[in-house]
Design a protein around this nucleic acid. Structure first.
Length: 878
DNA sequence: CGCTCCCGCCATGCC
DNA sequence: GGCATGGCGGGAGCG
């Protein structure tokens, strides 16, 4: 057969190598010949493979077609084999399919199967994210090409992008050196810096206008002066590489890749639409934009994006603009580096005492795998944390040997996680796109409009949960974990007011009332990445680690949010949600104002809100952190389950971590329950969501605040929703208290709008009392033993229980979560009232946003997510 | 139908 | 001239 092929193939490039039977050797040991392989295949036949064709084939096995196919198969097989053998990571997917499916199908490579992204994954699977410093892995292009069963040309595409990030460097002809992600964070930082210089202001410029920034209101300056790109970074050389080689033009792909990444890093929103990127890149090039060029650029960007996606640095999203929906990519990799800007930076390796490797791992994790990152992060965080964390938290834990271990573990875990993730993703397949749960969880992802739409069952919750927990955690908890980073980071970090959650929101049509039941968490948990499981194993250390992870998550998340609070997300998606949101949106924002003015500006836009939400999520997770340890233990299970369930998990590495956290949060404390109430009378178009968890007071607050918000829709964290089963109440409901609720609630609401405070509470717990009382006594929550302490399991059970019966009703479990915040010394109750007041007060009254923030920082956490939301809103109005 | 982006022709430049 | 690189864009797969 081989021969056969050759004959066909032959013509083109002379056989660089001698005819190799790639097929055979590949499987076996391709290694040796460095030579350029001959093209593996030429496409034997023109005939399109159609399912039908397959059938035919089947029918007549002997047909020539069959043969060809077979050939193809073989060709591909090598890939599969390599994958399998090489890396577990690789999708098993294919394999499975193969078994199940006809061989034919396998063979026929669908376009997807040949995608650059997939190819890149396979490629990456072959090498460790963080190779030991000692070992240098060299990559032979020919070898890889043959192993992966693709043309060299494709490998160039991958390698060029990887090289732009310094994951590899060119050593010699046909030889590249694999560096892994150790330097990734550094590289990204460099790019970020460079990007700021070049584009910095730019982000805004005209192009952007349209999109992201623009929306956000960032006014960016127009242009960049220097722009022209010099090659920003010539990483390549730095490494070991011999730079000798690069002369060729500018190697646009490499440069484009760097610039593209820079755009993300510079972008507040972290979302870059292809067209904008193309325009920017073209401009730099200075060319006049001509359509064809534009198209070409876009094609290249897709190539780059595919690789970056495989690296887990970006994900595809859609930005909805006035004009319509545009393809865009969102940065999901590490955002903050040590830079000054964000707190996050702290994480940065610099501070870390850890060995490079470890650092690398950290970095990797970020980029790469899901949950892993967290760990790494936190490890790094720990070290780093001091900065922020220290402030808030107590001690930053220095890196202890423990950390190192953790790191190691982390790396391992990460790998595992990565693998798992991949699998999951694969399994999930398309799923991610839509939900991207992971992303969500990880990222707050508000961005994706899609998300908004989709309530995911999965992971998302974290967000919700996060809200509460986060508060607490950050506050008190932090101690343990150095993590302060986590929650703190987002929120506390800087002392800024906590961020509002990033959570993605769900929009509900104003309709009747919906009860959301808590308990979802579990589901959410599902998301937990394998990583978590792994982590769990380690758990022991976990505590420390966990927090770290949390931190990481946060950091990651935060990064996004904090750095660009407003922008974070997607604008588009948000927009949808935002629409209503405008008001509300603004809410969130406040937190960061300090840092990002932008955010503020953005806040105006819905965007900010989204961002905030995300933040919250982050926060939440953080709180969870402590719990995490516990969870971890549990997690493993969860993970599995999750994997199945959630599948969603996406590539985002971080998410997993978050997820975990979230889960944790969810588990314990919080099962947030929300009520969605349509406003009956008073408010014309308002719908409210209440969180059961929150103290009644909170609710009441809402009412007060409401005025500011007049949105037809209520935004709910998607996560939350997802987690909860929604029960639509058509109208007043069942007799159950709920019904009462509904009634009351509605009234209240209306009231609220008018007056104030009656809080409507539905919580299962005692809370139910609708205390209208001004104060939200919040206390009910007191219980709040730190959820953390609670064993996740217990919590779950509890939640479950609650849910079960009344659940629908929304007996919400109010849990402790609030308390968690308790960790904070403050008495929640006391505090709350204050908050509430503040919150409730009209934004205007708020006047002291600062106070708010303060409160938030401390108390806020205590407050339920809802409150926060409110708060946020209030602020924004400001 | 339009978004994606695979595929591979062919230019560029080194040896 | 041979070969390594990689720019580039036609056009097909896919949703």
């Amino acid at each position: 057969e081989n021969i056969f092929d050759r004959s066909r193939m032959a013509p083109k490039t002379p056989i660089k190598n001698e005819p190799i039977d790639l097929s055979k050797q590949k499987g076996c040991t391709p290694e040796r010949n460095p030579i350029t392989p001959v093209k593996i295949i030429d496409r034997p036949q023109p005939d399109p493979w159609t399912p039908t064709a397959n059938l035919k084939i089947l029918v007549s096995a002997a047909s020539p077609d069959m043969r060809d196919r077979e050939k193809k198969k073989e060709l591909f097989r090598p890939i599969e084999n390599s994958e399998q053998s090489d890396t577990p990571d690789s999708l098993q997917y294919d394999i499975v399919d193969d078994s199940t499916v006809d061989e034919f199908e396998k063979q026929r490579p669908s376009r997807k199967q040949k995608s650059l992204g997939l190819l890149c994954q396979k490629f990456l699977a072959r090498y460790p994210n963080y190779p030991l410093s000692t070992e240098k892995t060299t990559i032979s292009l020919d070898e890889v090409a043959s192993i992966l069963g693709v043309e060299r040309r494709r490998i160039y595409d991958i390698v060029n992008v990887l090289e732009s990030l310094q994951l590899v460097s060119r050593v010699a002809k046909n030889q590249y050196c694999w560096h892994g992600r150790h330097n990734l964070s550094q590289t990204l930082k460099m790019l970020q810096d460079a990007g700021e210089l070049q584009y910095g202001e730019l982000m805004t410029s005209q192009h952007k206008e349209q999109d992201l920034d623009y929306k956000f209101g960032e006014r960016k300056k127009a242009i960049i002066p220097d722009s022209q790109d010099r090659p920003l970074l010539d990483f390549s050389e730095p490494d070991c590489i011999s730079a000798s080689a690069n002369s060729r033009k500018d190697k646009s792909l490499r440069i484009m890749s760097q610039k593209f990444v820079m755009l993300f890093l510079v972008s507040k929103t972290k979302i870059v639409t292809l067209d904008i990127a193309a325009k920017i890149l073209i401009e730099e090039t200075q060319d006049t934009v001509d359509h064809s060029k534009f198209k070409t650029k876009v094609r290249r960007l897709y190539d780059i994006a595919n690789v970056l996606t495989s690296l887990g640095l970006i994900k595809k999203v859609h930005v909805t603009e006035e004009r319509g929906r545009k393809p865009a990519f969102k940065w999901i990799g590490p955002v903050e580096f040590p830079k000054n800007t964000d707190e996050l930076r702290e994480h940065s390796p610099a501070s870390d005492p850890l060995p490079e490797t470890q650092r690398g791992a950290c970095a990797q994790y970020q980029t790469s795998a899901t949950g892993k990152q967290r760990f790494t992060r936190h490890a790094s965080f720990n070290s780093a944390q001091p900065c922020e964390a220290s402030r808030r938290k107590v001690s930053s834990e220095p890196n202890s040997p423990r950390q190192e271990r953790q790191d190691e573990n982390c790396s391992k875990m990460i790998n595992l996680a990565a693998v798992c993730r991949q699998k999951i993703e694969e399994d999930t397949g398309s799923a991610k796109k839509s939900n991207t749960t992971l992303p969500v969880s990880l990222l707050p992802v508000p961005g994706d409009s899609d998300f908004c739409v989709n309530p995911l069952p999965q992971a998302v919750f974290p967000v919700v949960q996060a809200d509460v927990p986060s508060f607490s955690l950050p506050i008190g908890i932090s101690n343990q974990a150095p993590h302060p980073s986590m929650p703190a980071a987002s929120k506390t970090e800087n002392g800024k007011p906590t961020l509002v959650p990033n959570q993605p929101f769900l929009c509900f049509p104003s309709s009747s009332l919906f009860m959301l039941c808590g308990g979802l968490q579990e589901n959410n948990l599902s998301e937990p990445l394998p990583t978590a499981g792994e982590l769990g194993s380690r758990n022991a250390e976990a505590q420390a680690a966990i927090p770290a992870t949390v931190c990481q998550k946060r950091s990651s998340q935060k990064c996004s949010s904090p750095s660009a609070p407003g922008d974070d997300e997607e604008p588009a998606a948000k927009k949808q949600t935002l629409e209503h949101g405008d008001l509300p949106l603004s809410l969130v924002v406040p937190k960061k104002p300090s840092e990002s003015p932008e955010a503020e500006s953005c806040s105006g836009n819905g965007c900010s809100a989204a961002v905030h939400l995300e933040t919250n999520h982050l926060d939440l997770p953080s709180p969870a952190a402590p719990e995490t340890a516990n969870k971890e233990s549990t997690k493993p299970l969860d993970c599995q389950e999750q994997g199945k369930q959630s599948q969603k998990k996406e590539p985002d590495d971080p998410p997993p971590g978050n997820e975990h956290i979230s889960k944790e949060n969810a588990n314990q404390p919080f099962q947030p329950q929300y009520l969605y109430v349509q406003p009956t009378a008073g408010l014309s178009s308002f719908n409210f969501l209440f969180s059961a968890n929150q103290a009644p007071g909170a609710i009441s607050l809402a009412a007060n605040q409401l005025p500011s918000v007049s949105v037809p829709c209520v935004m709910v964290p998607s996560a939350a929703l997802a987690s909860f089963p929604l029960v639509p109440f058509t109208s007043p409901l069942s007799p159950v208290p709920d019904s009462s609720f509904s009634a009351t609630a509605s009234t209240n609401f209306s009231m609220s709008s008018l007056a104030s405070t009656t809080p409507v509470f539905i919580s299962t717990t005692a809370v139910v009392t609708p205390k209208v009382s001004p104060a939200p006594s919040a206390d009910p929550q007191q219980p709040a033993h730190p959820a953390l302490h609670l064993s996740p399991v217990l919590t779950r059970s509890c939640s479950a229980v609650k849910l079960d019966s009344p659940v629908c009703m929304g007996h919400p479990v109010t849990l402790l979560k609030l308390q968690q915040p308790s960790s904070a010394p403050l008495t929640p109750k006391n505090i709350r009232p204050a908050h509430h007041e503040a919150f409730f007060k009209t934004p205007g009254s708020l006047g002291d946003p600062v106070a708010w923030k303060k409160n938030e920082g401390n108390q806020t956490r205590n407050a339920s997510s809802v409150q926060r939301r409110l708060e946020i809103s209030s602020t924004s109005p400001d």
